[in-house]
Write a protein that binds this DNA or RNA. Sequence first.
DNA 1: TTGTATGCGTTATCAT
DNA 2: ATGATAACGCATACAA
Lengths: 330, 330
Amino acid sequence: MRKKNSAPTMKDVALEAGVALGTVSRVINGCSVGEPYRQKVESAIKKLNYQVNSYAQGLKAERTNTIAFLIPNTTNPYFALLTHYIAVSLQRRSYRMLLCCTDFKRDLEQEYVSMVHRNQVDGIIGLTYNPDLVVDANTPFVSIDRCLGPSIPCISSDNFSGGQIAAEKLYSLGCRHLAFMRISSSLTNEPNKRKAGFENGCMIYGMTYESLLLEDGDELEKEIPRFLEEHITDGKLAFDGIFCGTDTVAYILLKALSRFGLSAPEDVQIIGFDGIRYLSEYDHVCSTIVQPVEDIAEMCVEFILQESMSTKPPLICLPVHYEAGGTTKE
Amino acid sequence: MRKKNSAPTMKDVALEAGVALGTVSRVINGCSVGEPYRQKVESAIKKLNYQVNSYAQGLKAERTNTIAFLIPNTTNPYFALLTHYIAVSLQRRSYRMLLCCTDFKRDLEQEYVSMVHRNQVDGIIGLTYNPDLVVDANTPFVSIDRCLGPSIPCISSDNFSGGQIAAEKLYSLGCRHLAFMRISSSLTNEPNKRKAGFENGCMIYGMTYESLLLEDGDELEKEIPRFLEEHITDGKLAFDGIFCGTDTVAYILLKALSRFGLSAPEDVQIIGFDGIRYLSEYDHVCSTIVQPVEDIAEMCVEFILQESMSTKPPLICLPVHYEAGGTTKE
DNA sequence: TTGTATGCGTTATCAT
DNA sequence: ATGATAACGCATACAA
């Protein structure tokens, strides 16, 4: 008589089928087994509704088929998108995803990194903000948007090019004096290169620009209107094109503009960054530099599942592209 | 990219500390141990950087401290919000969350349900769409927004009240002839009650209304403008208030209205449902019936972690409230 | 090919 | 209080 609550084990199946334990194991793992045995085992499995216990399995195999994903939250649209594609990418390979929301907390980020040593996950994909994050050299870790060290691959968009493309595009659309606004991270991460790329583009085309650099804690809803006010003379903006560090900044900017009776692309052309959508594929926030989120996700998963990577590339930049979204004069 | 040299075990610690295996286990689990022993063990743990192997632990304990969360995707803002709060809620209790994106696929939903039998998770919280989903009676399962059976708790907002409140509110704001639009699910789920509540509210106040009931696959971006066109005479809408089944529908509606040169709340007042925000706490999509997402998440987690399931309430409706968001004349 | 026995890292139950 | 040892469920090397 089996214990009441616990699920049937291989032993139970073996007993039921009248075969040895090893035979059951072989059937489960698809090894060659005599046909009459196989049938007996399979019917016993069905009868008992047997399922392998992945903990016993993991104990032997030292692998969990689970990857931890570290992300501040899932409410930010870009993070949500990233989470989605990474989840899908892992699923396609029959891997599970442990979602770890860090809420930008440094200690939480660090704590999750140690999970891998507790054999709870096979590896970690992380978009982290802890500047002092310590990742052991033999901890399988793939970083998004931030370089953590030579032994840790970092996957990112080609942010520099993105910024430059934005400047070029605005120029080709007739803009001559621009503005740039973003939330600057004190951290040195890849997205910060958007600014450099933009500046480079402006330089090439001989354009000048105003900058609004916001801090992490600043309220965009207040700072952006203030900035606009400073640059409005007789109801007219001092610049004819704006590059926003992210689409969310562009979104807030658009709302702020409407309160001044201004709108894009009529009064000013706007290009954002990220390529997020609100609801459907067609629901653009603004004209924007689209990050290849799906490719980024795929690349992260590829690398984290790579068993032996003799040469780990430190930084991979994936190509971005411009996409019109109603805030430019196309 | 897997670990090469396997992690130290309790055995290694015992050897290093010169004590027995059981003693190490007792130190780890906080049982009473003689002080000199404890110190020897603790320094050995530190020296070897020992971490318990949760798989061996899980093998004995038959629990994983992990809950699976089934959700179609994380890109829909409401799903993203739900995911976020459930993740936080589980984290607070030191539980891990396995994120399972089902993409509305019935077989995927069903497959994940069996995970619990493979001892891979302790329980499941699911927002599912498979009408034939089979959930074993002794599978710890908490459903969101859809009743699956008497033994499975369903957590939801009070959707009926929400619909009624919307009608009442529009009436008190001066509306007399309304419209209702939603994506109707063929499934019988809780959100469908929003319509019944709305109708009830209209009846009480003697209001008439037009309905736009969309199918799952319909493109809102086309159907909504068509509906508006049918009800516009000389640039004026046939109704003065609209209740949308979700905020996302309201969002698309707002965009469609602007293309007709109409806007809310001037030309028509709009109330949505969900209470999603775009970026910050202040960034409303529309006036709306706010779902208590945080409470829903908390309640789900409470129930799934409830060991003794003697009293399982079949359906719990949590109170919603109205919140102005710029598309009503407050 | 099939059966048997051992070990994975922990916890729990024994003696000591 | 501490040490030895037997499970837990599975995979596998080895014996038959």
